[in-house]
């Protein structure tokens, strides 16, 4: 019986119709296998990338805590990340505060709630806008610069040279940037808070004819320490994210100008997305 079935199957395969069906089945299987392989490859690449990033983060944090500390480099990064970012963060905060006061006025006059403008400005600036916008600005300016600098060092073998000179690149290159990023962004945000609130105040007083005394007292009454502190903690987290992404993508940069360019783009995009995600998570933790 089994032989009979086998013979008739072989006859079918030998027939023109059978050959076509068999060929179609083989092509179908190949397609399924190729698709499975592609999914598998993508998943493996994803997990490998997550693993690489996790190891990099752990190594970076570990070596940032261990001596030697390169004080001159840390100071230089304070200047690069903090001082040179001040104009862009200050301008962003100033105009954000101004626009916020203007837009709030447009909306709130419909409900005779103009007195809430001072509160909206100060809470929006300190809790959300100053840390997030400063984080995004620093990601564009500093994250890109870190990735480009370390990426160039990677492709010109300067990182290998560091290792051959018995210097740990994590301690020499990465730790100063992480420390400076984490400590400088809160200072930038604090300055941004003051400038942003001043921007709202200036528009309210000079363009919307508010009384300076009542605007300031409303601002002061509604502001609580948690509003500022939460913004500063967010800023520290964003500073760490920006410098970490810059260092990670630079350190793992591909070869040549294209590799460094790609690393720079990846650093800015990943830092920006992570800032928005962590902003939600931290807001949930602080204010839910």
């Amino acid at each position: 019986m089994k032989n009979k079935i086998l013979v008739s199957f072989q006859d079918f395969v030998r027939s023109p119709m059978g050959q076509k069906t068999q060929a179609a089945t083989e092509i179908g299987w190949e397609y399924v296998l190729d698709s499975c392989q592609a999914i598998g490859r993508t998943m493996l690449a994803f997990f490998a990338a997550v693993g690489r990033l996790t190891v990099f983060i752990l190594q970076s944090v570990w070596y940032s805590l261990l001596p030697p500390y390169y004080a001159r480099h840390i100071f230089r990064q304070f200047i690069d990340i903090g001082y040179y970012s001040l104009p862009v963060v200050g301008m962003t905060a100033l105009f954000t505060g101004m626009v916020l006061a203007l837009q709030s006025y447009t909306g709130f006059t419909r409900f005779n709630a103009e007195s809430a403008i001072a509160g909206v400005v100060v809470l929006s600036v300190t809790r959300e806008l100053s840390p997030v916008l400063a984080g995004l600005m620093v990601a564009g300016r500093v994250g890109a610069a870190i990735a480009a600098e370390i990426g160039t060092m990677r492709v010109t073998e300067q990182i290998d040279a560091l290792k051959t000179l018995s210097v740990n690149p994590f301690q020499y290159l990465i730790a100063p940037r992480l420390i400076a990023g984490t400590l400088m962004l809160p200072i930038l945000v604090l300055i941004g808070d003051i400038i942003g609130v001043f921007g709202g105040y200036a528009v309210a007083i000079y363009a919307l004819d508010f009384s300076p005394g009542s605007y300031l007292s409303q601002t002061w009454d509604i502001l609580e320490s948690i509003d500022v502190v939460s913004g500063l903690i967010k800023a520290a987290a964003f500073g760490l994210l920006v410098s970490m992404m810059g260092c990670y993508h630079g350190y793992n940069s591909g070869r040549g100008a294209q590799g460094v360019g790609q690393a720079t783009t990846n650093a800015v995009v990943s830092a920006s997305i992570l800032i928005l995600i962590f902003n939600y998570i931290l807001t949930q933790i602080f204010f839910s």
Binding site: T156, Q158, T164, L165
Partner: peptide
């Protein structure tokens, strides 16, 4: 590794000097 590295010297293809 650090001890081993201190016994080595290396001249890189592009010199790899720190800019």
């Amino acid at each position: 590794r650090s001890r081993m590295m201190s016994r080595f010297g290396m001249l890189f293809q592009g010199a790899a000097l720190f800019d």
